[in-house]
Computed example of a mutant assay.
Amino acid sequence: MRILIVEDNVDLLDSMKMILQNEFTVETATDGEDGLFLAMQNIYDVILLDVMLPEINGFEILKKLRNEHIMTPILFVTARDALEDRVSGLEMGGDDYLVKPFQAPELIARIRALLRRSGNLTIDHTIKYRGIELFGKEQEIKIDSNLVKLTNTQYELLEYLIQNSGKIVTKEQIFDRIWGFDSDTTDAVVEVYIHHLRKKLERYGYHKDIQNVRGIGYILKAPKES
């Protein structure tokens, strides 16, 4: 699971990152412009968004994302606790609101609730697709009740495809999600890992679910019966 934190208070930003990084992959931005750029890549499972930000405020970031039909769950994290601010954020398409100061358990609980609501997490921290189950905390996978070994990268790739099952994901989105913007490789690596993942799934008949979308990327869905 990948989380973006957009917060201009560096001490608070570091604190939230420390709280979350044992359970999630965390990326950060300290101003609205950088936060918007990262959020527009649409590779995050949740965005933690301050309202009062340099360059572009949190409400404007939310508006721009929703206008682009990017529906990543957004948790506003802000000291602005006036009722009208909370209502405005939710009415504009925000998903939840957490007022500073807050305790670590509440932050984690709210993120997990958003992930469950979006279908990316179950109560027992698993994600499922047909006969495939991914156990997030242990990074284990079962296919039709059989325990299957995957590398960390293969696991992250399958997790991302399942989270977006039925949707087209571009090679660029996959690359940015799994390898990151500052990777010293190229997006050609995506094809290599898709090939390896298909080989792992072939024994159980799920390899054809990872379908090519010519010139764009891939989609995970059950193949049509011929």
Rank of each mutant, 00 (worst) to 15 (best):
37 F>I: 13
173 Q>T: 03
209 D>M: 09
104 A>W: 09
201 L>K: 03
226 S>L: 11
104 A>H: 12
16 M>P: 09
66 R>T: 02
146 N>R: 14
89 G>D: 04
193 Y>C: 01
78 T>S: 13
180 G>P: 07
39 A>I: 03
196 H>C: 02
178 I>D: 01
207 H>Q: 13
103 Q>T: 08
75 L>Q: 04
212 N>S: 15
116 R>M: 10
226 S>A: 11
157 L>R: 08
136 G>W: 07
183 S>D: 10
155 Y>G: 08
161 L>Y: 05
91 E>Q: 14
126 T>A: 09
136 G>I: 09
167 K>F: 11
7 E>G: 01
183 S>C: 03
68 E>I: 06
113 A>K: 01
32 G>N: 07
116 R>T: 11
182 D>E: 11
38 L>I: 06
27 E>I: 05
50 D>Y: 00
60 E>T: 15
93 G>D: 00
106 E>C: 07
205 G>I: 09
69 H>A: 14
101 P>R: 02
213 V>R: 14
197 L>R: 10
106 E>D: 05
181 F>R: 15
21 Q>T: 14
91 E>D: 15
135 F>A: 10
72 T>V: 04
34 D>A: 15
162 I>S: 05
82 A>R: 13
91 E>A: 13
160 Y>P: 08
151 T>W: 06
168 I>Y: 02
111 I>R: 08
209 D>P: 07
2 R>D: 15
167 K>Y: 10
93 G>R: 01
118 S>F: 05
128 K>F: 03
91 E>L: 13
192 V>K: 10
164 N>E: 06
80 R>P: 05
46 V>G: 04
89 G>F: 00
198 R>I: 04
40 M>H: 02
126 T>I: 05
103 Q>L: 14
123 I>M: 11
99 V>L: 07
47 I>V: 13
90 L>W: 03
206 Y>K: 01
77 V>T: 06
78 T>N: 11
162 I>M: 06
131 G>A: 01
61 I>C: 09
206 Y>G: 03
90 L>Q: 02
45 D>K: 09
105 P>V: 11
43 I>F: 01
185 T>P: 03
118 S>R: 01
84 E>H: 12
154 Q>T: 08
121 L>S: 11
41 Q>I: 05
68 E>D: 12
12 L>N: 08
193 Y>S: 08
99 V>R: 00
53 L>F: 10
65 L>I: 04
146 N>T: 12
123 I>S: 10
218 Y>K: 04
104 A>K: 15
104 A>T: 10
147 L>C: 00
158 L>S: 01
41 Q>P: 02
76 F>Q: 02
150 L>G: 06
167 K>M: 10
83 L>E: 14
134 L>G: 00
76 F>R: 00
